[in-house]
Design a protein around this nucleic acid. Structure first.
Lengths: 194, 194, 194, 194
DNA sequence: GATGAATGAGCTTTCATTCAT
DNA sequence: GATGAATGAAAGCTCATTCAT
């Protein structure tokens, strides 16, 4: 058995348990049980409970960034790229619901270490948006007075809030696609040169 | 000393402590110390630790909603109203930094009880936005195809993400006003009829 | 209002509360509520929680001893007297159920102070039995080889165990009178000279 | 170390501590210290403080019942059997003083859970007496009008009260054997057919 | 005397982490 | 590497008692 197998099993178990119970209410023994390993085994792969959250975050967000960038390579038009980003972001919920819950909820702790970490990795993800905006401005498609550093966050925040809505309401009023279309509509309308 | 004094003192102390250490890492004795009361005194005013968070949330968000609505009464034009909402939301940070941290962080965590509670009161706040959008559509200022139920969340989410940035980075690249202006610019451009 | 009124009210309230919840699970505030006085008022009449139990015990057992002795004055024959004692003892349950529960249960704590107290007062009560046995032996009715110091306890213990049965089982198989008759029958048969 | 070792160590420690301080005044840390384990270890073997008392009771009374029944198998005459029961009951004090204190004191207190539990196992013990009485009646040795259901309790109560005396007075006036002989004398005299 | 808000010591229980096997 | 029994620090909460009013 490769070392990474156990590591993976524990990470995946932690995602499930953190999503279900929250970081603080999750017990190491819950994760161990879910991963079908002994409690002590977890400490062969992680330094402590926080480390599991941090590692999980680092690895999974890395995968998402990679996947998103690959997807965007197929597009060249900034407008289409922003729409693709939105769809991809909202679609995470379908395929990785538990992970999204963890990213949404548990990474909001007012714990300096977590926040520092969250920021570093998130910036990489959000910067995908600012790069698209820059590209759009360079190509004369987006308004020059738009500040990518602000709008990348606004765009991400808007999508993120929609995600939160779906996580919390089991019976949402809107579909993911409707939301994606609406949000892109407003943002694009707001930033393109007409 | 009026009864409400102790209640107030504990609430304000809890905001400080929760903002500093997070809900789970905050100890009752921390709050008691900060409020300059005995540990047991807290239980004369609150049922348990959660109850402090819930009460705090209910009271403070109530004040914010009231204040925001009062402020908006002075405006009649939907565009101005949305801009006022944005400024007011971002300004909360200046006057009530610790409270905003608690609302941002601790009330987003995946505790069912908190989430359920949070939802009802939060909806009231966010609905201020959708009401403005409705009004704008009725007056023929905003595009009819905009769905207020989605855009209210997108708008709030965008502002909220900016707030988070300021909470986490002590030295932000942008001022609050810059951000407010930019976000309003994009959104309004995106939703007004030209 | 006489001082003793408050004292009485608290004592009676304590009997009810101790019977219902047990000494340790009873709170001073429960007793205060039941007695319709403030918590602090209790400390004007009693030194502490144990003191309530002790006082209650001393006063109530005193009343019982007095009542029992008065009743026995009407009888002269040792056999009849023992039977009367038994009936009287078992009858306490009917008229003072809560008090009997407290005496039965709460005075069994392995608390030296309580036990010492219990012993002193109880001896006075149980000695009523040994005095009757002595009298019976002097009159040639009871066997001389019977040791009153042992049999008084056996007799009391037998009756006491029946009491416990009624306290614990809401639907007992036997009536109080049946039990009294049976126990007297056996004991008297066992100690009289035939 | 076998699992049962820790369980046994904790049980025996609990008996000592409960006997010394009483159930409510005994702290978990007292038991842990006495058992030479960590506080938390206790919770690997017991659910809570009550559970220790209940388990202890179940196990120990079970042993006593077994031992008593084995002992009685050697006798066939009802009179001898009752005498043997009495001796055995009073002898428990010599060999298991602390356990007897717990059974006498702590398990008589008005906790509903304990009472309910106590009843079932205790009945099994006391029923040893009623079975002997039945046997004696069947064999025409004991009077037919004796009600075993009542007299079993009277007999037990008489012995139990003697036990209490020895627990409380370090310097008793009578020996255990004297007491056993006297009580059996009276009871047997009272129930045999002459 | 009477009140009841305030106190804070005290205790059960949990659970992240360790380490002997 | 893997285990899981054992650890013990830590904290939420209770409640007898006090004392200013």
């Amino acid at each position: 058995m490769r070392v990474s197998d156990k590591h993976q099993k524990i990470t995946q178990a932690a995602i499930k348990v953190f999503a279900r119970k929250g970081f603080f209410n999750a017990r190491i023994s819950d994760i161990a049980k879910e991963a079908k390993v002994a409690d002590g085994t977890i400490y062969l792969y992680f330094n402590n409970k926080y480390d599991i959250l941090i590692s999980l975050f680092e690895e999974e967000i890395g995968k998402i960034i990679l996947k998103t960038k690959l997807l965007l390579e197929k597009e060249t038009h900034p407008v289409e790229m922003l729409m693709l980003f939105a769809k991809q972001h909202l679609n995470l919920l379908k395929e990785h619901r538990e992970l999204v819950v963890v990213l949404q909820m548990e990474l909001r702790q007012s714990n300096e270490f977590i926040q520092e970490y969250r920021n570093t990795k998130f910036v990489e993800y959000i910067d995908i948006v600012s790069e698209i905006i820059h590209k759009g401005q360079d190509e004369g498609v987006f308004r020059a007075e738009i500040m990518p550093g602000i709008i990348k966050r606004a765009y991400f925040g808007a999508l993120d809030e929609m995600t939160r809505l779906w996580i919390l309401s089991p019976q949402p009023h809107y579909t993911l696609d409707e939301a994606a279309v609406q949000i892109c509509d407003v943002f694009l309308n707001g930033i393109v040169i007409k």
